[in-house]
Design a protein around this nucleic acid. Structure first.
Lengths: 226, 226
DNA sequence: TGCGGATGTTTACAAACTTTTACATTTCTT
DNA sequence: AAGAAATGTAAAAGTTTGTAAACATCCGCA
């Protein structure tokens, strides 16, 4: 279970976020000022920090900057009150992994949390080359082979395959795929996923009609077996 | 972490710049007159100096000239209050690496800082000669060989290749390339990049149609593998 | 000054890739 | 077993990329 630290002085906001995040299965910590936020982040080693820009004692920038020195890999999502401040956070590449402007929708924040967590993990979870049954995938070279013969995958197909391999055995919903492969800021039709799955099956399955790897879970999504 | 020296007498300006630069991970020093600015530049060996033209005691023009004698490689960005003064900075070939006219946007300045720093570093970050697969590139001689045979690259092609080699394995967008290779102040069409990539492939790939080095990332950019 | 060649940029069209659409098929529910 | 919902997939529509060729610019040189 992922541990998320919220650093934010508006108690109602913290309460709301905590409720929502816990409902999704995250373990949530909170700190109400910059100083405590920083200390908690160092001591509790959360997987993600949600950091307000305006904070008592030490402001969000400072906390972000210091944390990035102490724990460069710790993902941080910044909350900014006004859209003007966005320029500062993004343009300046403060080190935050993402930012959300208040007021924001819970779903949006959740999508970003998911995306950021995934990004922060994905770098290390997969080896460079991976053998699965008759498949061999080289993630660095963006190449794949089946029974020793090269399989030409488009970039999107490759990313989808990669995601399935990361989640091998788990059920992956179309929404998951859209969020994780496409990103939370692009919104293609859900059916697009099916089309890509079909094409992937043509390329990586012996008999695309009877897939051994990419299995349909009716009403839920797909899962990858190897 | 890069050290930047700001020489500027308007304290508010210094404060603002310092905040923004530190947020972005630079280590910032400040001096409030020309004399101190010069001394600090010599003593602290910053990676970059941001130098106002109008300064108490010794003006920016003098400081720049003296610094260029003492440390010819030290990059300097000039701040000029009126666009008329630009003529002085450029026309007189003062030695500044770039100039920005007040009032300027923070993002613009940051882009220039990045560009100038990159230019000043690029000479040293890469070894003089570099072997990648069947390629051999000599960055000092501006020459390249493939399978022992000389490959004639135009300057632009060479710079592009160099940039890709610096960013080996990372995805590089067309905008990145335009900013870093062409510079922030020239705006060729994005497709120009594609044209150069095509030409590079003709020269450095065995089978240009199936590139092993310069890989297309559809919808994102390119990446270089070695 | 004007010519010629090399380099750089834009343009235009073909090819590759992605997304949507539409309809057939399968699976689920009752 | 029938209707509703979900999925498979071919084909259309929309984007992005590859690349040749036209056009522009720079620079040396007579």
């Amino acid at each position: 279970m992922e541990k998320i630290l919220i650093v934010e002085d508006e108690k109602d906001m913290v309460k709301g976020l905590k409720f929502n995040l816990e409902a999704r299965g995250y373990f949530v910590l909170a700190a109400y000022d910059g100083e405590k936020g920083y200390r908690t982040a160092i001591e509790e080693l959360p997987d993600l920090v949600i950091l307000d820009l305006m904070l008592p004692k030490v402001n969000g920038y400072e906390v972000c900057k210091r944390l990035k020195v102490e724990r460069p890999d710790l993902p941080i999502i910044m909350l900014t009150a006004k859209s003007q401040e966005v320029e500062i956070v993004t343009g300046l590449e403060l080190g935050a992994d993402d930012y959300v402007t208040k007021p924001f929708g819970v779903l949006e924040l959740l999508a970003r949390i998911k995306a950021v967590l995934r990004r922060s993990k994905s770098g290390t979870t997969l080896p460079e080359v991976c053998r699965i049954g008759d498949l061999e995938i080289n993630f660095r070279k963006y190449s794949a082979h089946r029974k020793g013969k090269p399989v030409v995958l488009s970039p999107r197909e490759f990313e989808i395959l990669k995601y399935f391999i990361e989640k091998r055995g788990e059920i992956v919903s179309r929404e998951d795929l859209l969020n994780q492969v496409w990103g939370y800021d692009s919104f293609p039709n859900t059916r697009t996923v099916d089309t890509h799955i079909a094409k992937l099956r043509q390329k990586i399955e012996d008999i695309p009609d009877e897939p051994k790897h990419l299995i349909t879970m009716h009403g839920i999504g797909y899962k990858f077996l190897g």
